[in-house]
Write a protein that binds this DNA or RNA. Structure first.
Lengths: 151, 151
DNA sequence: GGGATATCGTTCGTATACGAACGAGGATCA
DNA sequence: TGATCCTCGTTCGTATACGAACGATATCCC
């Protein structure tokens, strides 16, 4: 059986022209999948992209409250909690209450987490390089610029 | 506390230059989040982007085996099974064994699924339009072309 | 024919992702 | 001070996402 056709109906040009494979959302999902695959190959499977985002952000800026950390790494409160919990279990981060705000939980890298992150930084750069490898240098800049407009 | 510094160590230019917010993977995740948010607003919350991908693909091409359907919609065997199961529960798709291959399960739209998909197609096009709205027309084509090279 | 190999669907475990609801703590303002 | 509103962290439920392992079925090839 081919695509459900209805010769009796008035043709709707808009409907006929929809091709899943041409939609930005679908293409982006595929690109993201390739990127994660590259990430896993290069970084090793024991760390996820999301977990790495947290480590990298903490390495750059030092500790912050859990919610703020979530905002900085593009995760909502429920998601960042799970990620921080798993990093806590691996002793890569540590937490303490904020003395100035009883609601806040400060999250920061543990000494082991600092070392671990520093070791992985070159690999993380490689991940980006390999992901963008199919593009020419000027194309890479163009892509990043366009994507930033769609955030 | 700022970023963990080590004045005593030899500076590593590569490490110092890593900025999470500038990595393709991170930016793409943010763009994907915005896209899903737009999708939910326009389509209504009762259908996910992945479920929609299955409906749209089945509408375009008719039924196919569950595994092939997964490949066409960029999902692995375990993921497509869950999606098909949920669409089955909502009676938007139906399945039957492949008479020519005892291993295969043929998945196709139900009559209700065909109607439902047809109704949603214009909205799905709007999702893409709104997602790309911040870009000029020629920029949209450029972005799609670049992304396709990174699949 | 029959054994090696590959594919298909299923299940399990783990990790995002996020809406919704909740209680505790903080800030604002009358 | 106290009522109101906001923020923060937590928990629950649901839906991807995918590696790994498994049994059933096909196919290949000698």
């Amino acid at each position: 059986m081919a695509r459900p056709s209805n010769a009796a109906e008035t043709p709707e040009p808009a409907d006929e022209s929809y091709d899943l494979a041409e939609q930005v959302g679908f293409i982006m999902r595929q690109v993201a999948q390739r990127h994660v695959s590259i990430f896993n190959e290069i970084m090793g499977t024991d760390l996820t992209p999301t977990q790495w985002a947290v480590l990298a952000r903490l390495y750059q800026d030092g500790g912050s409250s859990q919610n703020l950390l979530g905002r900085q790494t593009a995760m909502d409160a429920a998601t960042i909690k799970g990620v921080v919990d798993r990093l806590l279990k691996r002793k890569l981060v540590q937490t303490k209450p904020d003395p100035e705000d009883g609601r806040r939980l400060i999250v920061e890298l543990s000494p082991a987490g600092i070392d671990y992150t520093r070791e992985l930084l070159p690999k993380a750069e490689t991940v980006t390089k390999v992901t963008l490898a199919p593009l020419a240098t000027n194309q890479r800049a163009t892509l990043i610029a366009l994507l930033k407009q769609l955030r």
